[in-house]
Design a protein around this nucleic acid. Structure first.
Lengths: 143, 143
DNA sequence: TTCCGTGCAAACAATTTGCAATAGA
DNA sequence: TCTATTGCAAATTGTTTGCACGGAA
């Protein structure tokens, strides 16, 4: 699975006239390896296990490239740095503002809201770009 | 209205053992004066019309104070700096990622979603902290 | 052989902080 | 008076950029 995603991303870069470098391969493998949402710093840790010589700026440039090609996205989950994931993992994120826990939700949970908002305002909600903040079950109970 | 909100905020500070300074009064008046969501820089412009000597750091410290007292909030609306508003203006924001337009929605639009998520996960969605991104009616049509 | 991609270090934007001076209560 | 608040400048954090070199195609 991670392998397929890696190859698909590399193919997209190639199809766009971009070059496949060992740096890019290491970065994309590191991003495809988990189903989580690493920050650039966290991604760098993984990349450096493969190739310690990859520069941070290169990682920034590569995730930006992936986003421009529509195969990568960044999400803001609370304060702090952006978090990155590949596009075949689109879903919503519930982030607890007390303990920081992250709960993934299928993208469709927003469908009723989307329909209502589209009907009344014409606005098409996309919203994977931001997470939904709130309080998780554990933190709600501890009061 | 802006006057009342200003007095209420000042009272909350006083009730908490804080001191009322001319800087804080100017900052809160500037924030209460509109129903919009200024960044700290934009807020500073308004503050400086009242008192040009207020330091930026003081504005940062004051909005942080308001937030700690529960009478002010910041929202992330797309990239760029946080935007601030007083707590009696709680609502959701739809932000168009194409043209940047901001549409305010009553907070209750999220109620059905809140109920569904609470029922299935126990997570209590708060969510005024982030805006909902997407594409506004105009930008959707232009394709 | 061409350019694209990369390293490096400096630039940047938004925000925070330490500390001495100042001013509310 | 006593301590919270402020100014100032420096430090931080996350990210971007200019430019010369090196490596894919």
């Amino acid at each position: 699975m991670p392998f397929e995603r890696t190859e698909r991303a590399l193919a997209a870069i190639r199809a766009n006239g971009g070059r496949i470098t060992s740096d890019r391969r290491a970065i994309i493998e590191a991003l495809a390896e988990g189903s989580d949402h690493p920050t650039v710093e966290e991604l760098a840790e993984r990349v450096w296990k493969r190739n310690p010589d990859v520069n941070l700026a290169t990682i920034y440039r590569t995730v930006e490239l992936l986003e421009n090609l529509g195969i990568g996205f960044h999400v803001h989950m609370g304060h702090g740095p952006s978090r990155w994931h590949l596009s075949d993992e689109v879903h919503q994120h519930l982030v607890c503002s007390v303990c920081g826990a992250v709960i993934d939700m299928p993208d469709e949970v927003l469908d009723p809201l989307r329909e209502q908002i589209a009907a009344t305002t014409g606005f098409v909600v996309d919203a994977h770009h931001f997470s939904l903040t709130g309080t998780c079950a554990d933190c709600s109970n501890v009061t």
